[in-house]
Design a protein around this nucleic acid. Structure first.
Lengths: 186, 186
DNA sequence: GTTGCCATGTAAACTGTTACATGATTTC
DNA sequence: GAAATCATGTAACAGTTTACATGGCAAC
């Protein structure tokens, strides 16, 4: 059970949708707004090789039509297991505070990989951790605010409002899953 | 004009408030909610040494009372200049999309370093870039949403709501600076 | 006198950035 | 045939994480 970097899991999650080449993956990182990963070849190709070495992914040269050699990567059974294990990890307080990007990535992949019920459960854990943390950070602002410079106080308020926006969003998402239940309709 | 890592600028900004030891800085990163930096000694001490090598910071062993040797670091003139140059950089679209954490750090330090007028100008640039970007990402959701899985769409919506929360916050901050004008009162 | 905190540091491994290199293929 | 794009890769470097090491001092 080798642990992967966040980029590694992003690649695994994308390859779970369908096999792709390194170049395809780069284009996704370069052109879609939800991805904040680097599209540099120096990051992606070594990451793909690491995944291949670890047996999560397998690359095959595909003689697609005319162009130069393309290596298509597809997920192995071990890769799928690693993806599922990563998605099933409980949502911790530390995740909510320091690793929001990772949580969002996990959520984005959960529904297709583990199903809507698991996605809803993930959101409930997320909302619960957030709801527990927000009062604490607000309390911190009340206690320490007067000793902070105005810009520091404002920056902290921005953080609080971001957390609150995420909690509102999470509750909307939970409601959406509740209404639609087990529907698979897109 | 050596460019520093984000951690380097965080240290420089904190040392501008008042001289501190590496241990003090670690405690700040470990205990205050606004900081998402690592408090590991393997990050902070090497970063301080880099800053010292670059001449932005100077450390002195202070025989403070009883305890073991403490090295207090203080900002040099060159360090202050580097901090100011960093804070004065224009806010780009790419900053708003990919480097929110850096922007918040810059804002948190701007008022004490460059004054309230500069902090207000910073917020106006930030709000302008955000206001220009939000419609684009919303348009993307409209165009591509139907081709995305539900969880991907939801994750993107979360991003949009975060951007909107930041914009609301930025406008509040601008209003606060407008009302209070040149007051220095905390 | 042992546990735990204060305070600093180092070494190895890993990851990602930047910049470069290569060659094929399409477009003008 | 020149330029842009497809497609893959490498090498050098910088920064972070993790884990370890060290020693003084305080408390009990």
């Amino acid at each position: 059970m080798n642990t992967q970097s966040l980029l590694g899991y992003a690649l695994v999650g994308l390859l779970h949708q369908h096999p792709m080449s390194g170049y395809d993956l780069r284009k996704i990182f370069a052109s879609t707004p939800m991805m904040s990963f680097s599209d540099s070849p120096g990051a992606i190709y070594p990451a793909l090789h690491r995944l291949e070495t670890d047996g999560l992914v397998r690359g095959k040269v595909s003689a697609s039509a005319s162009l130069r050699q393309r290596r298509e990567f597809c997920l192995t059974a071990k890769g799928l297991a690693a993806l599922q294990a990563w998605l099933k990890k409980p949502v911790t307080r530390d995740d909510v505070i320091r690793r929001t990007a990772e949580l969002m990535l996990r959520f984005a992949f959960t529904e297709q990989t583990l199903g809507a019920a698991q996605a809803a459960r993930f959101m409930q854990e997320f909302a619960a951790e957030l709801a527990a943390y927000i009062p604490e950070i607000k309390q911190y602002l009340v206690s320490h605010g007067s000793a902070m410079p105005r810009s520091g106080r404002l920056a902290l308020e921005c953080g609080i409002q971001e957390y609150e926006a995420r909690l509102r969003w999470a509750r909307q998402a939970i409601a959406a899953y509740g209404r639609k239940g087990k529907e698979t309709k897109s």
